[in-house]
Amino acid sequence: MSDDAGDAGATDDPEPAENISGGAAGGGEATVFEPGEADSRAEAVVDRLGELYWQKAYGGRDGFECLVRTVLSQNTSDVASQPAHDSLMDRYGPGGDVGGDDLAESLADADQQRLAETISSAGLYNQKSERIIALAERICEEYGGADGFDEFVKTGDPDEVRSTLLDMNGVGPKTADCVLLFSGGRGGVFPVDTHVHRIARRMGLAPADADHEGVREALEREVPAEKCGFGHTAMIQFGREYCKARKPACLDDPEACPLVDLCEQVGVDPESGEVVDPAEAVAKG
């Protein structure tokens, strides 16, 4: 998971070296796809990312905890949101300082100021604490607690689950898709954060002027369902290491980027060193 810029603005917080959802300790299960002929350039990009980083299948996280964790990650980085999540679970989770057996019930009864202090490292802690308590109250009212919500996320119709999540205050498309992916283990879900939004348009995998939903639709249409999950997490990692917003690796040397042969470099001019948003580049003609 990363900053939820699909739901709000970008962050200037530093990011850790590795996406917390990747690598051996990042959750999910390692899986291997036999090499074959990709049916689209987007699939070829995801295949290359899988070779470069990891091929994983996701799912199994508790639905409500996943929702809370993703809310905490909005407008900030893993560096800031992970400690906030850990502190929240230490205090309100099962076996925590004030937690009962059900995380949703514990958070529904939480004092807002105390919760805000607990998650302060994530930034926007007053807004996020109010949002988390409201979500917990709704989960308890409609699903009887975290377990009932978890069952809904994992077994409900994916379109209904996504629609329900989007109806919740403070839950945008990327948050909803992360819950579907990391908790529900749903195939064909490609969450779009700032990295994915930038890279897909820069590479020409989605229209240059596409919004986050437009990018999601383009990727989910062109990438096989079973590859969307690790495509999301590996593309975030690629954005951190190579395809950065202001200085992509190809500016220094085309050979420095392992995906340069699959990239249209929309908005990137290696000769002049100019880097602009892909939509701006296309508008200029």
Results as ranks from 00 to 15, higher is better:
residue 235 M to W: 05
residue 161 V to N: 10
residue 232 H to Y: 06
residue 209 D to F: 10
residue 242 Y to T: 14
residue 251 L to Y: 14
residue 226 E to N: 04
residue 172 G to E: 11
residue 188 G to I: 09
residue 190 F to E: 01
residue 176 A to Q: 04
residue 225 A to T: 06
residue 260 V to H: 15
residue 258 P to T: 12
residue 182 F to I: 03
residue 251 L to N: 06
residue 207 P to C: 02
residue 184 G to F: 08
residue 246 R to A: 14
residue 192 V to A: 04
residue 232 H to G: 00
residue 197 H to S: 15
residue 166 L to V: 06
residue 190 F to A: 04
residue 229 G to R: 06
residue 191 P to T: 07
residue 160 E to C: 05
residue 224 P to V: 05
residue 227 K to A: 04
residue 230 F to D: 03
residue 196 V to G: 13
residue 193 D to A: 06
residue 260 V to N: 11
residue 265 Q to H: 13
residue 255 E to T: 10
residue 160 E to Q: 12
residue 174 K to E: 15
residue 226 E to T: 04
residue 167 D to T: 02
residue 175 T to Y: 09
residue 259 L to A: 13
residue 179 V to L: 07
residue 191 P to Q: 07
residue 219 L to R: 08
residue 254 P to A: 12
residue 214 G to V: 03
residue 266 V to A: 03
residue 230 F to A: 02
residue 210 A to D: 08
residue 210 A to E: 08
residue 162 R to L: 02
residue 209 D to H: 08
residue 184 G to P: 13
residue 241 E to S: 11
residue 202 R to M: 14
residue 240 R to M: 14
residue 200 A to F: 02
residue 265 Q to R: 12
residue 229 G to M: 07
residue 166 L to E: 11
residue 239 G to N: 11
residue 242 Y to L: 13
residue 222 E to H: 06
residue 261 D to P: 01
residue 229 G to H: 02
residue 250 C to N: 05
residue 171 V to E: 10
residue 178 C to A: 08
residue 175 T to K: 07
residue 181 L to V: 07
residue 207 P to A: 11
residue 218 A to Q: 00
residue 189 V to T: 05
residue 189 V to S: 01
residue 260 V to L: 03
residue 237 Q to R: 06
residue 208 A to Y: 07
residue 249 A to K: 10
residue 216 R to E: 12
residue 239 G to M: 09
residue 268 V to L: 08
residue 195 H to I: 01
residue 158 P to Y: 14
residue 153 V to I: 15
residue 187 G to E: 15
residue 204 G to L: 00
residue 213 E to H: 05
residue 245 A to R: 15
residue 253 D to Q: 09
residue 251 L to R: 10
residue 199 I to E: 03
residue 161 V to M: 07
residue 182 F to E: 12
residue 214 G to W: 11
residue 194 T to H: 00
residue 253 D to L: 12
residue 186 R to N: 03
residue 250 C to Y: 10
residue 208 A to K: 06
residue 237 Q to G: 02
residue 231 G to H: 10
residue 234 A to K: 05
residue 187 G to Y: 03
residue 163 S to R: 15
residue 214 G to Q: 12
residue 250 C to W: 12
residue 211 D to N: 13
residue 253 D to G: 09
residue 188 G to K: 00
residue 252 D to E: 14
residue 158 P to K: 08
residue 212 H to E: 07
residue 261 D to N: 13
residue 219 L to S: 07
residue 173 P to I: 03
residue 154 K to R: 15
residue 227 K to M: 14
residue 231 G to Y: 11
residue 168 M to P: 01
residue 252 D to F: 02
residue 248 P to H: 13
residue 269 D to L: 00
residue 234 A to D: 14
residue 183 S to M: 01
residue 169 N to V: 02
residue 162 R to K: 15
residue 236 I to W: 15
residue 172 G to C: 09
residue 224 P to D: 03
residue 222 E to I: 00
residue 180 L to Y: 10
residue 207 P to Q: 03
residue 207 P to K: 04
residue 224 P to H: 02
residue 200 A to L: 08
residue 194 T to N: 10
residue 241 E to M: 05
residue 244 K to I: 07
residue 173 P to L: 11
residue 171 V to W: 14
residue 160 E to P: 04
residue 232 H to W: 08
residue 239 G to E: 11
residue 179 V to H: 07
residue 223 V to Q: 04
residue 171 V to D: 10
residue 188 G to F: 01
residue 268 V to T: 13
residue 196 V to E: 09
residue 264 E to S: 11
residue 202 R to H: 09
residue 187 G to H: 00
residue 260 V to S: 10
residue 244 K to W: 01
residue 244 K to M: 12
